[in-house]
Simulated assay, not measured.
Amino acid sequence: MTKLFTTYRVLALVVGVLLLVGTLDIILKYGFSEGSGPQSLGEDLDVVWLFHGWIYIVYVIVAFVLTQRARWTLPQFLLMMIAGLVPGLIFWVEARVARQIRAQFPDLQTAGSA
């Protein structure tokens, strides 16, 4: 369970960062005039969405396995899924999941801190 929990936390943070960078991409790409420096940077950042998509799929699988092992309900799993699609939300959800997992599996207290 320790490796699964650690993998979930890393994936959540990576997905969250990629989502924020992707959001910045959209702001730069569509918020500035055509041909400007920020607009060109926005176009260059488009590749972030490819990485976010693939890593999000892995995140979904790991989150599903984690919720199954923890015997959580469907709404808890759905909140984890939505968090990977709403900029910034995943950081709050990851912290909440970490608290719940550590409370449910006290043996992870020391393992999750390292």
Rank of each mutant, 00 (worst) to 15 (best):
G84N: 02
L74W: 15
A12L: 03
E94K: 11
Y30R: 12
L13E: 09
P75E: 07
Q109N: 14
S33N: 04
G35S: 01
V21K: 08
I90M: 00
F32N: 11
P38R: 13
L41F: 05
R9N: 14
L89F: 11
S36Y: 02
A95G: 14
P87T: 01
Q104S: 12
R71V: 01
E43D: 12
L79K: 11
V17E: 05
A12S: 14
L20W: 05
A114T: 13
Y56K: 04
V93P: 01
F77I: 08
V21L: 12
L11G: 08
D44I: 05
T6A: 07
L18I: 03
E34T: 08
D44A: 08
L41S: 01
L108H: 09
F32I: 02
W92M: 13
K29W: 06
F32V: 06
V17R: 04
V93D: 02
F51Q: 00
P38D: 10
F5G: 04
I82D: 00
H52F: 02
A12T: 13
G31K: 05
P38I: 01
S40P: 01
W54L: 15
A98P: 01
G112C: 04
Q76L: 11
L45S: 02
Q100T: 04
R9K: 15
S40T: 10
R9W: 02
K29F: 06
L89P: 03
T73L: 07
V47H: 03
L28Q: 12
V15D: 03
G22M: 03
R71N: 15
L78M: 08
V47F: 09
D44N: 12
S113I: 07
L45C: 05
V86Q: 09
I27Q: 06
I61Y: 07
V60E: 06
G112M: 07
Y30N: 12
L11C: 10
V93K: 00
R9H: 09
W54I: 14
L13I: 08
